[in-house]
C-alpha cells in the first residue's frame, strides 16, 4: 500500500468518518440497518447519518418513535435473528431509558442461554459536555456499560478510529457500545479510504515519551496531546495513550508504558469517582508495574457535580489542558 497517495491523506470529520463506515457496511452487508430517533430525513441530531436515508431508503435507515427502551429492545431482537442493527441513542443520556435492554438483555442473553445465540448489536452514544445543553444532555456514562460483562465498550478519539472501530464493532459477534464525543464530530483528521477495522481491545500510543504516561479517553486524548506539546518545550517527555476500548481494557500497553516512565496520569471527562481512571489505577497497582512507580498515580476526571449550563462553569467541571499540565509538571518534578 502506498502510504503517501493522495487519497490516503484525505481528511474527514469524525462525523463524516462514522457515516462513511456505516455507508461501507451497508454496501457490504444487506443485513446492516440503522435505527434511531430522527436519523432519516433529519439526518440525525448531530448530522451523523446525514443523507444515508436517500441512498438506502427508510427500510434500512429507520426513524424510531421516541422509544429508547423499545427501540433498543427491537435492535436486540433483530440482532438475535439475523440482522446487524446499528442503534443510535440521540444523546447518550437517553440511554438511561433503555438500560433494561442493554444490561439485562443484550449483555446477558448469550450467557443465560449457554451460548446458544449471540447478540451482534451495535449501539452509538453521542456523549460529553461542551455544547451548553446542561445536565441531561452532556453526560459521560460509559463506565455504566463498561461495568457489565457481556458488553464491549469503545470510545474513539479520532476520525480514523471512529470509522475503524465502528466497522470492527459490526464484525464482532457480541454487543458493542460506541461512545462518541459530540465535540469531536466536527474535528477533522486523516481517514484511510475503503474498508478497514481498528481492533477492539487495543489502545494506541499517540505520542512516545519517557518521563510520564498520560492515559486518556475520547476528547481528553486531544487535550493530553496539546499538553504534551507544551511539556516537551519544557523538557518533559510525556507518553500519551489513547485507551480507545474501555472493556476489555488493553492492559499490556498501559503497563508497558508505566514500567518505562514510572509516572501515571489518567484523564477522562466522566465523573472522577468510580470511573475509568479508577480501573486503570487499580490495574497498575495490582501489577508488577506498581514497583516501577516513582510517584503516586494522579486521576483527572469530572467534578462531583451534574454538568452545569453556564459556559464557564461547564468548562470548570471537566479536565482542561492547564489541569493536565499542572498534574504532569508536579509529577515530573517530584512534587507529588
Amino acid at each position: 500500500m502506498n502510504m503517501h497517495s493522495k487519497t490516503d491523506l484525505r481528511e474527514l470529520s469524525y462525523a463524516e468518518a462514522i457515516r462513511e463506515a456505516m455507508d461501507i457496511a451497508m454496501v457490504r452487508d444487506e443485513r446492516v440497518i440503522l435505527m434511531g430517533e430522527d436519523i432519516g430525513v433529519y439526518g440525525g441530531a448531530f448530522g451523523v447519518t446525514g443523507d444515508l436515508v436517500e441512498k438506502y431508503g427508510t427500510d434500512r435507515v429507520m426513524d424510531t418513535p421516541i422509544s429508547e427502551l423499545g427501540g433498543a429492545g427491537v435492535a436486540v431482537g433483530a440482532a438475535m435473528t439475523g440482522l446487524r442493527p446499528i442503534f443510535e441513542f440521540q444523546f447518550s443520556d437517553f440511554a438511561t431509558l433503555g438500560m433494561e435492554q442493554i444490561v439485562n438483555q443484550a449483555a446477558k442473553i448469550r450467557y443465560m442461554l449457554g451460548g446458544a445465540v449471540s447478540v451482534p448489536v451495535v449501539m452509538r452514544f453521542p456523549s460529553g459536555s461542551g455544547t451548553g445543553a446542561a445536565a441531561q444532555h452532556s453526560q459521560s456514562l460509559e463506565a455504566w456499560t463498561a461495568h457489565v460483562p457481556g458488553l464491549k465498550v469503545v470510545q474513539p478519539a479520532t476520525p480514523a478510529d471512529a470509522k475503524g472501530l465502528l466497522l470492527a464493532a459490526l464484525e464482532d459477534p457480541d454487543p458493542v457500545m460506541i461512545y462518541e464525543h459530540k465535540i469531536l464530530y466536527k474535528m477533522k483528521g486523516h481517514v484511510p479510504d475503503g474498508y478497514y477495522t481498528t481492533p477492539i481491545g487495543k489502545a494506541a500510543v499517540m505520542r512516545e515519551g519517557k518521563d510520564l504516561t498520560i492515559v486518556a479517553t475520547s476528547i481528553m486524548v486531544h487535550k493530553a496531546l496539546d499538553a504534551a506539546e507544551t511539556l516537551a518545550a519544557e523538557g518533559i517527555e510525556a507518553e500519551v495513550i489513547d485507551l480507545r476500548t474501555i472493556r476489555p481494557m488493553d492492559r499490556d500497553t498501559v503497563l508497558a508504558s508505566v514500567r518505562k516512565t514510572g509516572r501515571l496520569v489518567c484523564v477522562y471527562e466522566a465523573v472522577k469517582t468510580l470511573g475509568v481512571g479508577a480501573e486503570v489505577s487499580a490495574m497498575v497497582a495490582e501489577s508488577d508495574a506498581f514497583d516501577y512507580l516513582d510517584a503516586p498515580i494522579v486521576r483527572l476526571g469530572g467534578a462531583e457535580c451534574p454538568i452545569p449550563y453556564n459556559p464557564e462553569l461547564e468548562k470548570a467541571v471537566v479536565p482542561q489542558v492547564p489541569d493536565i499540565l499542572e498534574a504532569a509538571r508536579n509529577l515530573a518534578r517530584g512534587r507529588v
Binding site: 443485513r31 440497518i33 427500510d59 427502551l69 423499545g70 427501540g71 433498543a72 429492545g73 427491537v74 435492535a75 436486540v76 431482537g77 433483530a78 440482532a79 438475535m80 435473528t81 439475523g82 440482522l83 442493527p85 433494561e100 435492554q101 439485562n104 438483555q105 442473553i109 443465560m112 442461554l113 445465540v117
Partner: peptide, 24 residues
C-alpha cells in the same frame, strides 16, 4: 428465543424478531 426474568423484557425483542422476518 427464550424465557425472560424481566417482566416485559421480551416484548421489544419479539418486535425485533418480527422486524428481521420482514426485512429478511
Amino acid at each position: 428465543l427464550g424465557a425472560n426474568g424481566i417482566v416485559g423484557g421480551g416484548l421489544p425483542i419479539a418486535v425485533g424478531a418480527a422486524l428481521s422476518a420482514k426485512r429478511l
